[in-house]
Amino acid sequence: MKLTRVGWITILLTLILGFGAVNTGNNLLYLLVSALLGFILLSGWMGRGNLSGLQIDLRLPEEIYAGRETRVAVQVRNRRRFLPACLLRVEMAQGDAFCPLLRGGRGVRVSLAITLPTRGIHRLPPIRVSSAYPVGFFVRRMSWSRGQEALVFPRPRPLSVQQMPGRGEDQGRAFKDRGYEGDLAWIADYRGTEPLKFIHWKMSARQDDLKVKELSSMAAQPLLIVVRLLPGATLEERLEEACWLIRTLMKRDQSVGLELTTTRIAPGWGRQHQRRLLRALALYDSDSHTS
């Protein structure tokens, strides 16, 4: 709790009037001083209740990248039924937001911009809520920290077109595969796993055996990113480039895999797979592996 200038002025005014009241014995002045004392006391109590009646929840975005500004959502809820929570300044690291009035039983979601400098697991800074309510005599501060951690991926470092996979001889290895959306490649025996729509009914009727159409794949070639082969000067740069590659290629629906010193993740698709790759990059321990 910090006393503001308004608070100092009010305390000074009360002291002056109190001094006058004691020395003159004027009971009307005593009444005024008593009212001011009651006011200071009650405003302190209300200020405390203003913050203690809050419920704070933090929601992080799915992907946080080192050195990049990220917006985290802070859900503030006033648990009191009738009394409002007012003049709330919500701060977290460098980000802050202001909520002038939150009525009883209501909630609000504020968005704060934070930047985490390096990759890895970070313990999040506490959320600080301060308020000068009700009359600005004191600024009360409360801090919420549940020891929440955030996984920070490396900062994506773009590669030039020349450095993109497929251009160099040693950039990754291609896989050939059957697909479901290309041209008809050949007719094969039904193995019991193919979808019914691929059964070639006319051919099956002629040969008394179920035949299926096999199509060629339209997707790009699966790619395995070998971090040690990337052009960055340092390990961190190569991890950042790998991060950029994963994001860029998977956005194009390309199947991407990753090879770190001791870890190898086979190529795959989807958000979960992308998170798995990025997580591996984020947690890659430079101390225990040499590049």
Binding site: N23, N27, Y30, V33, S34, A35, F39, L42, C86
Partner: peptide, 28 residues
Amino acid sequence: RSLAGAGGLLAAGSLLLMLGFFVILPRT
């Protein structure tokens, strides 16, 4: 309205406390 309610509560509570302080404040 919500703010006025809180302000009213503060004023009414302070005036009630005033009665208590008036009785106990030191006098010469």
